[in-house]
Design a protein around this nucleic acid. Sequence first.
DNA 1: CTGAAAGCGCTTACAG
DNA 2: CTGAAAGCGCTTACAG
Lengths: 348, 348
Amino acid sequence: MATKETGPRLIDVARAAGVSIATASRAMAGTPGVRPAVAELVRKHADELGYVANVHARTLAGGHSRTVGLVVHEIGDPYFSEIASGLLRLADSEGLSLQICHTGRDPESELRHIRTLAAHRVAAIVVAGSGFVDPAVEAPARRELERYAASGGRVAVIGRHHLGTDAVLPPNEDGARAVAEHVLSLGHRRLVVVSGAPVLTTVADRLAGVRAALADAGIPEGDVPVLEGPFTRDGGREAARRVLDEHPETTAVLALNDDMAIGCLSVFRELGVAVPGQISVTGFDDVAVAVDLNPGLTTYHLPMAQMGEEALTLALKEPSVRPRRQLTRGELVVRGSTAAVRADALLL
Amino acid sequence: MATKETGPRLIDVARAAGVSIATASRAMAGTPGVRPAVAELVRKHADELGYVANVHARTLAGGHSRTVGLVVHEIGDPYFSEIASGLLRLADSEGLSLQICHTGRDPESELRHIRTLAAHRVAAIVVAGSGFVDPAVEAPARRELERYAASGGRVAVIGRHHLGTDAVLPPNEDGARAVAEHVLSLGHRRLVVVSGAPVLTTVADRLAGVRAALADAGIPEGDVPVLEGPFTRDGGREAARRVLDEHPETTAVLALNDDMAIGCLSVFRELGVAVPGQISVTGFDDVAVAVDLNPGLTTYHLPMAQMGEEALTLALKEPSVRPRRQLTRGELVVRGSTAAVRADALLL
DNA sequence: CTGAAAGCGCTTACAG
DNA sequence: CTGAAAGCGCTTACAG
């Protein structure tokens, strides 16, 4: 019988079924080498007793875990929740449990959480979210992940990191270039880039893409201000105000992610700045809401859910000698927030 | 030294520090009763070795887990990701890990996941997402949770369930009544309710709130069609088309959640139906994007992150004899998607 | 303050 | 096909 405080154990099931604990274990695990009738009997008793195998005992004895870990900046952020959703769907179908943790973009916190996941002996860790341009910032995390990997753990990251692991790489540079080319093709020349912290590889790569497009168009870099702020909606709001204050002649704002673009749109709307009539706005990521904004947000679509799935797929593969690099395909999505530059703006 | 496949164990640390495994354990856990200098020495060696305690061994031996479980319908859905975010923030500050699972609104899947969480011996389970009006649907989950609780697990739910557990209760009925009263106060009489499946308590309660407001206003229930569909953006899109087809005289659409409202807005926008000029639209929940829509969505604000936090708080408390019921406060948020009914519509 | 030892609930060679 | 036994890596009374 189940004791009040711990529930029935395997030995209770074994006794009820009149078999050894070894046989009961095999029957429950579906391991071959048990007479089918016996296995069935065991399972019947397990069911009756409400037996639920203790994962900790099982993992400790068996040596492999059926849980994977996901590290995100902020699960409330659609970018990450869509990644989590795709990853979770795959985990589910593989019978894996998922442990999620928040870092709040804090490297210290990330480190602590990686250690916790390692302590849980999860089968794999997926780190989502931007890396840092400076390898030194990631060095402690790298060390921790290497230790984890050395003890049999698997790791994959989403984005460009210096972690030495398998990686899913979104086309940040190409995508940003495509967005910028689109805006340039509409005749815009007075651009402002609204950017997150360039210490992040995601930001740096997108910035590089924009610059490449500018260079191709023969526009001096100095002609295009880059306004930096938090890589969030609020950061976008702040930047939008600065655009209006400091660069009133601007005809197009290139925000380096949708969050910032959404912040810009909200300010422009509040202040009666017409989009795209007066200023065109672009984002990056294509979070689910981008299509529902009004005007719809022109942006670069990243298949977040798929990226989450791919990252877990990589992490579940046998480790390779060289880290794998999985390139993701994105796509420019043109919606209502961009339009040809006004004729009078050309005269400025 | 760490073996290649498992990493250093406590015994390796103990040896390195020249103490017993018991002392090493106490030092690492911070349990009192170890000479501070010794404790420090142990931790120094642990650090050098890169020792990370095995959570499974620790949980098995110690008997208590530092992990909690969260069951949601879909983590990619902002409603749930915001709940998860609040809950995760609290979990973090309590030093708890979080295991998340998806049910896809499937009771079978929910049951399976509850069992998995129980197998993990998580300290608490939080079930987010609507309950079912029919207690029979929840009976298996209830049985499973009771078993889990009997073996020392703690449970809290968000929403009205028949699970016999502590619950965080959003003001679905009052909120929907407030929304309906607001729309009625604007002079609208030709309403349509766009609803999810009424087998869900969330839907049933919101519907009840709308009906109460209608009754107060002396409007016969039969005058207000209720269009049912999936409780999602797509469900809202479908319903919006039906509104236009089957009830072209409609001046206000009350969607029972933001997702459906957003779906309605997208269809109206595509078809050139002015909101709120021609039709006013309301939602429920106030997901983060509601304010960024254009027009902004009039809706009923639920503090999702806070609800997640409260649910975990309840689950972490000592169990009470009677299930606790924590009522959440919400708030009507009037934005641009609702306006006074057009004078000509009054003549219809 | 410290250590030897039992025990947490399983899995898995190893023998039959 | 089945079982006795060792062992997974810890914690925690229990003795000192």
